[in-house]
Design a protein around this nucleic acid. Sequence first.
DNA 1: TGAGCAACGTTATAACATTACTTATCTTCA
DNA 2: TGAAGATAAGTAATGTTATAACGTTGCTCA
Lengths: 181, 181
Amino acid sequence: MALQLIRPQPCTDPKCRGQHAPAERVALAKSLCGTRGVQLTELRRQILELLWESGRPTGAYELIEVLKLRRPRPVWPPTVYRALEFLICQGFVWKIESRNAYVPCAHPERQRDCLFFICTNCGATAELEDLRVEQLLAENATVLGYRVKRRVVEVEGTCARCIAAGAAGAEKGGARWKVGI
Amino acid sequence: MALQLIRPQPCTDPKCRGQHAPAERVALAKSLCGTRGVQLTELRRQILELLWESGRPTGAYELIEVLKLRRPRPVWPPTVYRALEFLICQGFVWKIESRNAYVPCAHPERQRDCLFFICTNCGATAELEDLRVEQLLAENATVLGYRVKRRVVEVEGTCARCIAAGAAGAEKGGARWKVGI
DNA sequence: TGAGCAACGTTATAACATTACTTATCTTCA
DNA sequence: TGAAGATAAGTAATGTTATAACGTTGCTCA
């Protein structure tokens, strides 16, 4: 059951102009798991790959659909949610709270909270770090007396491609998986 | 069916050290609705009041429970979601995306995106504006070529009171409504 | 050889949200 | 007055997202 559509994707972090192939990112995750003494099992690997292939925030139930087609036996929600929890804990995946959907993390080796820019038209998601934002949030937290655990920064808008295409509410989809074989 | 527990709450925006009573905030909403030519109906007003009373992000189904007790006839999800949509559109309520829950807006007259600091222990939520954060996000959006529509900034942590109380995962609740009469 | 553990399977259900259609209420103007 | 239109709310059903609770598998290691 070979995977389809493994192709490079531009890294959306301006600090990293390179290109990342999903396979390469999955290999990095595998390697980090080795270092950390945890397992990137087949299911976990498969979910991480699917997220890389998708190219947009993807819901758990969408993943379940695809996994049902690609795996010998059907997969149920708790299984997928457990795998997602693992991937999130290890820093390989982010949850986009404003969409109840998941995206792969471009730089799991970094382990910092990121900002996300999400195109409401095509779903394209850009992930980046900005320490200045983190600093401002920390500063505000101090003023309020809060001890920070997690930052959720999600900016919804329209991406450059969709602006160029004049799209401001036309299509809704985004990438789709080639399923089967 | 008079409301209980209408008491002042500290404004969590450092730019505004005053105290806001829920009743006063509801009156402001009423007045703004008048100006805008829209109606703050009984149901909408009641939901806004409940959110002010609650003192923490409150889910739609929790509101439904209370409304079922306080209103002559039961209330169903679409009714509440419609009212919430109205309140959000008018800037009287925010949705906390990371919790699928709702909080009243301390300054509906302002109409800007806010930052939220949410205590994972007691639910206390601080709302504030920081133009510097907005600017940084705008700057990043420009670099990425995104046109910004909405910002979601939610910082999870522990509030000063819970830190002082040594609580780092004990209770889970927060304010509760006095229901009835 | 069976205790301990991590991962996954399975059923059921909780929690959050929307669709589609109906009914009520209010306004306005012929 | 009362018909037409607009706005809001009622209701049943359903869709979507997430977790609880318990069982099974397969591996490791004493």
